[in-house]
Every structure is written in C-alpha cells, then in structure tokens.
C-alpha cells in the first residue's frame, strides 16, 4: 500500500465509495431538475388522490363547522418523516386558514412543539390571517406512546373533528387512532413510510399516502417549481435503480457477481 493511499484512506473510507457515487448522482439529478424548473420548464406530477382529499377534508370541516385534527406521528425531529410532516403541516395550515377552520395539533415529542408552532404560525401568515393563529391549539400530550394515543383518542371523541390528518412516523398506535377516528365518522387521510403500519392505515382511513408520496406531499401541495424539480430528480433516480436491479438480476443469473457486489455497503 503506497503511503499516499494510506494517508488518504484515513480521511476517506474507500469501501464506501459506492455510496458516495450513488449519492452524488442522486444530488446531480435533483439539482438538474431544480435548474430546469427554475428556467420555467413545466414538470408533470401525477395526481395523488390522497393529497387532493386534504382539500376535500378541509371543505367538509368548513361545512360542518368542526375542527381538523393533525397528528404528526410519535417520532422526534431527528426522523425525516417528522420533518416531512412538519412541512405538510405548514401547507395544510395555509389551506385551513383560508377556510377559517380550527386546526388541532397534538404533539408527542416536546422538541416538535416549537417546530409545529412555527409551521402553523407561518401557514396563517402566508394565508394572510396571522390573528387567527391560536398557540393553544398546538398541544404537547406525552412522550409515552400509549399515553399520547389515549390523549389523541380523547380529543377525537370529545371534539369530534371533521377530518383527521395523520402524517409522519407511526407504530402500534396507528390502528388505535385510525379506528377511533373511523368510529367518530371523520374523513381520514394518513401517510407514513413505516411499511408495517401502512396496511392499518389502508384499512381504517379513507385515503392513504404510501411511503415516498409522504415526502412528495410538500411539492405537490405547494406546486413550487423548485420542489417539483426535486421530485423529478427522485423519479429519475428510481428509474436508474430499476435498471440496476434488472441488470444485476440478469448478471447474477449468468454467474457474474462483481456488479451486484459493488453495491454492498461495508
């Protein structure tokens, strides 16, 4: 081993060069499409009925004169699903503010409270109704999973929200909340990337946002070109992954293992 390589290898793990290459490609795709969007190129995004249903849910709440309940999952801000949920909360608040519907946001983690407060406040400001923002509607319930579930179920049964929006990282509480919401007759839209909870949401909710759609929600709702560009970048990356999967399967079938082994993370 040459001394230069030895020195470099202490500053860069060459076993992980595959991750760096893929990450670099992905970043390049995203930035390319963001640039295209900035130049004014129109980008098509397919219809996601679950996201269209949010507007329907807000409309229903307006007609019924009842609040909307937004649940952001039970994970902290270090989970990207919670980050995505806070971004969606901002977009939903903007919509809710336009219709003058109260928005209730029970929170499971204290660190999420200030972020949710900012997202909601921002939503009201963007809608031109800063005075309608009520800080008391963002409620910290409990860090304990089932204490939080009990608290949220209590809100569902007492306040009878017209719509329950559940976006974020959920675990065993998902079905308890969704079934309670179903029993109250609320229109329910849920989204998570936790695959074990998806079947529960599919069964108990009117619309379910599956996996990656959760992360696309912000771009879809805001229709901001820069965000739509990043969506296109992800799509191209997915297309590349499909090609790699097919190629890898074919090469493995013929006994060539070098290609697929390059993708292993050591």
């Amino acid at each position: 081993m040459s001394p230069i390589f030895f020195y470099l290898s202490s500053w860069f793990d060459f076993n992980r060069i595959n991750v760096l290459v893929i990450l670099g490609l992905f970043f390049a795709f995203v930035f390319y499409f963001i640039n295209q969007a900035k130049k004014g190129k129109s980008l098509f995004v397919r219809r996601i009925s679950g996201l269209d249903a949010i507007e329907e849910a807000v409309g229903r709440a307006t007609e019924m004169g009842k609040p909307i309940l937004y649940i952001s999952g039970i994970e902290d801000m270090d989970n990207l699903q919670t980050v995505a949920s806070m971004i969606i909360l901002g977009n939903v608040t903007e919509m809710v503010a336009r219709y003058d519907v109260p928005l209730l946001v029970p929170i499971c983690r204290p660190f999420v409270v200030p972020v949710a407060e900012e997202a909601v406040k921002q939503g009201y400001i963007k809608a031109g109704k800063p005075d309608a923002y009520d800080k008391n509607n963002i409620r910290y319930i409990s860090d304990e999973q089932f204490a939080y579930t009990a608290g949220v179920n209590g809100i569902m049964l007492r306040e009878r929200p017209a719509a329950n929006l559940m976006f974020g990282s959920f675990f065993a509480e998902s079905l308890i909340m969704a079934e309670t919401g179903f029993s109250t007759g609320a229109i329910q839209v849920a989204g998570t990337a936790n695959i074990h909870q998806l079947p529960f949401f599919v069964v108990a909710c009117d619309y379910t946002i599956i996996g990656e759609e959760l992360f696309a929600t912000s771009a879809y709702l805001s229709k901001e070109p820069k965000l739509l560009g990043s969506l296109k970048g992800s799509d191209l990356a997915k297309f590349l992954i499909i090609i790699i999967l097919i190629l890898g399967a074919l090469l493995e079938t013929f006994g060539i293992t070098k290609f697929s082994s390059w993708f292993f993370v050591r």
Binding site: F26, L80, Q81, A84, I195, E212, F215, A216, A237
Partner: peptide, 10 residues
C-alpha cells in the same frame, strides 16, 4: 426504496 429516496430528497 421509494421512501428512502424520498427521505434523501427531503
């Protein structure tokens, strides 16, 4: 895979 890409993108 879709969710992971979405998470990286976010």
């Amino acid at each position: 895979i879709g969710a992971a890409l979405g998470a990286i993108s976010t």
